[in-house]
C-alpha cells in the first residue's frame, strides 16, 4: 500500500479493482455446492477456482497492481461550535476521604492466615466437647464441597478423612485470606476503634451474611451449624486477624505525595492525616454552592 503524500504528487496509488476475488469465491462456493447438486456444478466451480487463482496471482506478482487516483484537496476548518467552559472549582475537602496510608497486601494475607489458624481453636473445642472428635468440624467444613457427604452421619464426620482435611484446609484457607485482604482494605478507613470494628462489627456482619446464604452455599452446614460457636469462632478470627494486620507498618499511597511539603514533613496536620478537619467550613462551602 502506497502512502505517498497527495499534496505534492496530486495523486495517490490505490489497489486496482479486480474481478478475481469474486470469481474465486464463486468457484469455491460452487465446488462445495456440488456435494448437494451436481458434478457439473463442481466442475464449473473448479474451473472458476483455477481462473480466479491464476488471475489473482497475476494481479499481485511480481508487483501488486495499482492505479493512480487523482486527488483534489481543499483547506476547510475543523472546528467546534461548542464553548469550552472553564472547569468549576472543586473544594479540596471533597477529596479528603482518599487514604494517604494503607496496609500492604502481604499483611492481609498474614493476618488472614493467623486469624484462620486461631479460629480453629474455638471450632476445635466445640468439635471435641460436643462430638468428641476434632475431625467433626473439619469434615463439616469440607462437606460443602462434596455432594455425596450431604447425608453423612455424625460418626462418619467424626472420623479422619484425608479428602476432608485437604478440602477443609483449601476452603478455610481461601476464605481466611480473602477476609484478611478485606481487613487490609478496610481497617485504615476506621482507625479509631480497631478492636470494635475488626473484632466485633465485621464478624457479626459476616455472620449475618452467612446466616442468610448458608442454605445455598452449604446445605449440610446449614443443618448442623451451632450459631453460638460460629459467632465465637468469627470473633476470635476477627480479633487475631485485626491485631496481626495492625501490627504491620502502613505504606503511603499516591495521595500522600499530593500533600503540601509541610504536611508531609510532619510540621502541619492536613486533611486525611487523622487530624481534625474543618468540616463545618466544608459544609458551609457546599451550602454556598447549592445556593
Amino acid at each position: 500500500m502506497h502512502h505517498d503524500d497527495a499534496t505534492t504528487t496530486g495523486q495517490i496509488q490505490l489497489p486496482t479493482p479486480t474481478v478475481w476475488p469474486i470469481v474465486l469465491a464463486l468457484g469455491v462456493a460452487l465446488l462445495v455446492t456440488a456435494l448437494v447438486t451436481s458434478v457439473y456444478i463442481g466442475a464449473l466451480g473448479l474451473v472458476l477456482i483455477l481462473m480466479g487463482s491464476v488471475g489473482w496471482f497475476r494481479q499481485v506478482l511480481p508487483h501488486e497492481a495499482h492505479e493512480p487516483v487523482p486527488v483534489e484537496t481543499e483547506e476547510i476548518r475543523v472546528e467546534t461550535a461548542r464553548r469550552l467552559l472553564k472547569a468549576a472549582p472543586i473544594s479540596d475537602e471533597r477529596r479528603k476521604i482518599l487514604p494517604i496510608e494503607s496496609f500492604r497486601i502481604s499483611s492481609g494475607i498474614k493476618g488472614g492466615l493467623a486469624g484462620g489458624f486461631a479460629m480453629t481453636v474455638p471450632a476445635g473445642i466445640f468439635s471435641v466437647v460436643k462430638y468428641h472428635s476434632f475431625w467433626y468440624a473439619v469434615n463439616l467444613m469440607a462437606a460443602g464441597g462434596f455432594v455425596s457427604w450431604a447425608g453423612a452421619s455424625n460418626q462418619f464426620l467424626g472420623e479422619f478423612h484425608l479428602r476432608g482435611l485437604l478440602a477443609a484446609t483449601a476452603i478455610h484457607g481461601m476464605i481466611s485470606i480473602l477476609v484478611g485482604l478485606l481487613y487490609v482494605a478496610m481497617l485504615h478507613m476506621f482507625p479509631k476503634y480497631p478492636i470494635l470494628s475488626a473484632g466485633f462489627v465485621v464478624p457479626l456482619i459476616f455472620t449475618g451474611l452467612m446466616h442468610t446464604a448458608i442454605g445455598v452455599v452449604s446445605p449440610i452446614l446449614n443443618q448442623r451449624i451451632e450459631w453460638f460457636w460460629f459467632v465465637a469462632s468469627q470473633i476470635f478470627f476477627g480479633l487475631v486477624c485485626g491485631f496481626v494486620v495492625n501490627l504491620h507498618d502502613k505504606v503511603r499511597t499516591p495521595q500522600f505525595q499530593a500533600l503540601p511539603f509541610a504536611v508531609r514533613a510532619g510540621f502541619e496536620m492536613g486533611p486525611g492525616t487523622g487530624a481534625p478537619t474543618d468540616d463545618a467550613a466544608g459544609k458551609k462551602n457546599e451550602e454556598e454552592n447549592q445556593a
Binding site: A6, T7, V69, P70, V71, E72, T73, E74, E75, I76, R77, V78, E79, T80, A81, R82, R83, L84
Partner: peptide, 14 residues
C-alpha cells in the same frame, strides 16, 4: 468562545 483550527480535508475528483 469557539476554537477554530484548520486542517486539510480531502475531496475526491469523482
Amino acid at each position: 468562545m469557539a476554537t477554530q483550527t484548520t486542517a486539510v480535508v480531502d475531496r475526491t475528483v469523482h
